[in-house]
């Protein structure tokens, strides 16, 4: 099972390979102090995320994938990717057969506080339920390695403070 998913992941990355990857990697390295190997890995993971997002839309799963602080570095790479509009459009059209929009949460929808402990608990329970659903979906589509990289390795290596500190 693990071998199958690892092989499938490699095939997926090969299928998502683009001639213009280096332009995005260079663009990211201009904005963030990371080496080429790190930037390349983050781009690979971002492309996997975009592929997963397109699958989720096509499959009409009834829930939307979301980015939280764990995936901050993927979100930053996504921002770099969409700056290169032609390359991003080509990637979406040719590799995903679907244009994946980037839709930031409006400021008015961001939670800044709670009226009560009960309300706070309710919010956290809902968040946990959504995250659990998303983790399960990522596991089924991309395997344990990806779940662990996105939600264990990346948050440790690129937490909010670190991402701010490497911004050029």
């Amino acid at each position: 099972m693990i071998q199958e998913i690892t092989t499938a992941n490699k095939a997926l990355l090969s299928a998502l390979d683009c001639e213009e990857d280096n332009i995005i990697i260079e663009g990211f390295m201009e904005r963030y102090s990371v080496n080429q190997e790190e930037a390349s890995e983050i781009l690979q993971e971002t492309k996997k995320w975009l592929w997963l997002a397109s699958e989720n839309i096509k499959e009409k799963k009834g829930f939307r994938l979301f980015i939280d602080n764990s995936l901050l570095i993927i979100d930053e790479m996504w921002h770099t990717f969409i700056l290169h509009t032609r390359i991003y459009q080509k990637f979406c059209n040719e590799k995903l057969n679907l244009f994946v929009h980037h839709e930031p949460t409006p400021a008015s929808e961001k939670i800044i506080g709670f009226y009560s402990e009960e309300e706070k608990q309710k919010f956290h329970n809902k968040q946990e339920e959504l995250l659990s659903q998303q983790l399960s979906y990522i596991y089924d589509k991309l395997g344990a390695e990806t779940v662990s990289k996105w939600y264990e390795e990346f948050p440790e290596k690129f937490d909010k403070k670190k991402v701010h500190s490497i911004k050029r």
Binding site: I57, I67, T105
Partner: peptide, 10 residues
């Protein structure tokens, strides 16, 4: 705690 999604797709 997470403050909800930063970005969403649809």
């Amino acid at each position: 705690p997470t403050c909800g999604a930063l970005c969403a797709i649809n």
